[in-house]
Simulated assay, not measured.
Amino acid sequence: MKTGKYAVALLLAAAAAASGRAFAQGCVAAHSSQHTMDELVTDLNDGASGGFNIHNLILNIGYRVFNSNKYFVGTDEIARPTAVRNHQNIFDIGVEYRLSPRFSLVADVPVFNGTRDQIYPPSGVYQVSGVGDLTVGVQSWIFRPPTENGGNIAVSMSLKIPTGIDNATGSALYQGQIIKATADQSMQPGDGGWGALLATQAYKSFWRTSFGYLQGQYLSNPMDTNGVKTFRTQPGQGVMSITDQYLWRAGLSQGVPKIRHLAVSLGIRDEGVPAHDLIGGNDGFRRPGYIISLDPGVMYSYHRDVISINGPWALARNREPSVPELQNHIYNGDAFFADYTIVASVSHHF
Rank of each mutant, 00 (worst) to 15 (best):
D270P: 14
V109G: 08
R21H: 14
L134V: 10
F143Y: 10
Q118W: 08
V106C: 02
D117Y: 08
V128F: 02
V111A: 08
P324W: 01
P110Y: 00
S205W: 07
V273A: 01
Q237K: 09
L315N: 05
V131C: 06
V95S: 04
Y63R: 10
V256A: 06
I291N: 03
R232F: 07
D334S: 15
H55T: 14
D277L: 04
P274L: 03
I330D: 04
A154H: 03
A263S: 14
G62H: 02
N53S: 15
V95I: 14
Q25H: 11
S345T: 10
L252F: 11
L197V: 07
P145T: 00
S68F: 02
S186V: 11
G192M: 02
D117A: 13
P81C: 06
I54V: 14
G130V: 06
V106P: 06
D76F: 09
G124P: 10
S301D: 07
G280S: 09
S345G: 13
V95R: 00
G26W: 05
Y213F: 15
Q245D: 07
K5D: 13
V346W: 04
D224P: 12
H349I: 00
G267R: 00
D108R: 03
F103G: 01
S156Q: 09
G195D: 01
L59D: 05
F72E: 04
D244S: 04
W248T: 07
S241W: 00
H349D: 05
G238K: 05
N152P: 14
A9D: 14
I142V: 15
Y203I: 10
A172P: 12
P121K: 00
S293N: 09
N56W: 05
V106L: 05
V106T: 07
P110V: 00
M37S: 07
Y6G: 15
Q188W: 06
F337L: 09
G150P: 10
S186E: 10
H261L: 10
P162D: 02
V111I: 12
V346K: 05
V323N: 04
S345N: 15
A24F: 08
A338S: 15
E271T: 14
A172M: 02
N67Q: 14
A199S: 13
D270A: 07
V264R: 03
G289M: 02
N318T: 08
G192R: 02
Y126M: 03
Y174P: 11
A13R: 11
H276T: 15
L315I: 08
P324Q: 01
N86T: 13
L266H: 08
R116M: 12
G284P: 06
G281K: 03
P321M: 00
F112Y: 08
A202P: 13
L59H: 10
V239K: 09
G51F: 01
P189R: 01
W248A: 03
Q237W: 01
P222M: 02
N332P: 13
N69Q: 15
